[in-house]
């Protein structure tokens, strides 16, 4: 797929999974996200690009309410998942996060065994009724994380003992093990070598069949390779959002153009 020219890609518009309207984020006095409106589609990979500090991670963390853990962070506006406001007081953020999984920039496996890392999510959500079922879930998740062959003989070894790339794939496996509907990935490949990156990108492409995937990346090539939709952020605002092919070949905003051609950022 990597070689397919953008314009020839078969673009199918899916139904909207997450939509944000007039989203504002403040860290104390710092207005980090300004008036962001975006529709993230189901079964689609959406890439967030933009210069460092423009608020990509901040906006991503709004989508599963991870910002709740930051005391000074204030989120305003309306963000909906399948039409339901996720910031509604009746919503339990924990339940939301089970539906909207997250993979972090730095691989952060639990200091437990590889098996326990993946089994933890299904266990606390009660997805497995027996040990055999849990084993099955773990194996499936590790296979989807493209790491099963490397770790199948040492599932009891500590997850922290893996290489950086393996750890990141383990974290992806851990995230998919809970069967989320949306997967948020914050620069998942920044710690990986080209081979591991290629594996993760392939994985993302597979995940698209079932999930809505949002990926933050600093690599234009990566955004171009894996995503169908791209959002360009600049200084807290969403400057441009559209088909990846259109953004990279025919950007409408001059700021987008100068960023992807390497003049700002």
């Amino acid at each position: 797929m990597y070689d397919t020219p953008f314009l020839e890609r078969n673009i199918v518009t899916q139904e909207v999974k997450i939509s944000a309207r007039d989203c504002q984020v403040h860290y104390g006095d710092n207005h980090a996200i300004k008036d962001v409106n975006v529709d993230i589609e189901d079964k689609t990979v959406t890439a967030f690009i933009g210069p460092s500090g423009c608020g990509k991670s901040t906006f991503l963390r709004c989508l599963n309410r991870m910002n709740d853990t930051i005391d000074i962070c204030r989120v305003e506006g309306r963000i909906t998942l399948d039409g339901e406001d996720i910031y509604d007081p009746k919503v339990d953020p924990v339940q939301l996060r089970a539906k909207v999984g997250m993979v972090f920039q730095k691989p952060n496996p639990f200091p437990k065994s590889i098996y326990d890392n993946v089994a933890y999510g299904p266990k606390i959500h009660g997805l497995a009724r027996s040990k055999a079922e849990l084993d099955e879930i773990v194996e499936k998740a590790l296979r989807r994380g493209a790491i099963w062959d490397e770790v199948k003989d040492r599932l009891t070894a500590p997850g922290t003992g893996l290489s950086g790339g393996q750890q990141q794939r383990l974290c992806i496996a851990r995230a998919v093990a809970t069967e989320p509907e949306v997967l948020l990935m914050d620069e998942p490949c920044s710690a990986l070598d080209p081979i591991a990156t290629a594996q993760v990108e392939e994985l993302i492409d597979e995940l698209r069949e079932q999930y809505s995937v949002v990926i933050v990346t600093h690599s234009m090539q990566q955004a171009a390779r894996v995503s169908q939709k791209t959002a360009f952020f600049h200084m807290g605002s969403l400057v441009e959002f559209g088909e990846t092919g259109q953004i990279f070949t025919n950007p409408r905003d001059p700021r987008t153009e100068s960023y992807i051609t390497g003049r700002i950022g």
Partner: peptide, 27 residues
């Protein structure tokens, strides 16, 4: 205890208390 462990637990849908008792406290 590194905050990334807490993030990791919250990220897979653990509650704050589960994150603390399953991951932070043992460490």
């Amino acid at each position: 205890v590194p905050p990334s462990i807490r993030d990791a637990a919250l990220g897979v849908g653990a509650s704050k208390m589960q994150a603390v008792f399953h991951h932070v406290l043992p460490l």
